[in-house]
Amino acid sequence: MKPLLQVFEVSKTFDAGGKPVRALDGVSFSVLAGECLAIVGESGSGKSTIANIVLGIYQPTSGALLFQDKELPDVRPLALKQAIQLVQQNPLSSLNPRRSVGASIRLALDVHDIGDRAGRKARVGELLEEVGLPADFAGRSPAALSGGQRQRVAIARALACRSELLVLDEPTSALDVLVQARVLKLLADIRRARRLTYIFITHDLAVVRNIADRVAVFEKGRLVEIAPTADLFANPSHPYTRRLISAVPVTSRREAELRDRLQEPLDADL
């Protein structure tokens, strides 16, 4: 598979009250076209920083990003904004409470001039149906929707741009278990149907195990391990990865066995 996005030696330093804080430290990886790459880490790992750099919200202090083999400029033209879209963690804040759901989705169509004016209303309805909501939800306010429904709207808005790469920033962390399962299923189905590429940012390894093709583990601004999902869980090579997996609260005996097996080499390291 061809890489859709390549990240070369990207570092990012923030200025925190006079003293520089290094949020990312020489990170390199590629995102292959059509894959779901999970970026995993705890707070301070740099996972949000890399997401913001991919989206063009932050500029890297050094290093470069290539999208479809072309370097991403500092100021992105509309076409590049269209190609890379975002789904945020908190659907409560990511939808404007004073605008209708339809208006939020339609903004993407208007900005990128997708379809003719008359066709856009119908397009909003189609997008809502694609994420499993009735088309007439377009007139509702976000306050009238449940958390899961709001997140579906946020996904529809990202899809409206006809992007190739979606950055999913903890898209199910704020949702209840049952809703999370449905939204994860929806995301997996959409990726298949639209041949999208995902960067899935999360702290939840159990979710990663079930949705990602490959996993990149970040710790304190460094990429410590990147591997295909099944390999990473069967045989994590970095101690931090092992520690992360063994900290997951599990719900079944089988999982507990896997976890205990991973804990042993960890103790042996010490």
Binding site: K81, L86, S93, S94, L95, N96, R99
Partner: peptide, 24 residues
């Protein structure tokens, strides 16, 4: 988040100020 969402989509500053922020 909704301001970030509009910016990532590529909406103009005027739109973000008067159509997104002002109503709130």
């Amino acid at each position: 988040g909704y301001v970030l969402a509009a910016e990532v989509i590529g909406a103009s500053r005027l739109h973000v100020m008067f159509r997104e922020i002002l109503p709130n």
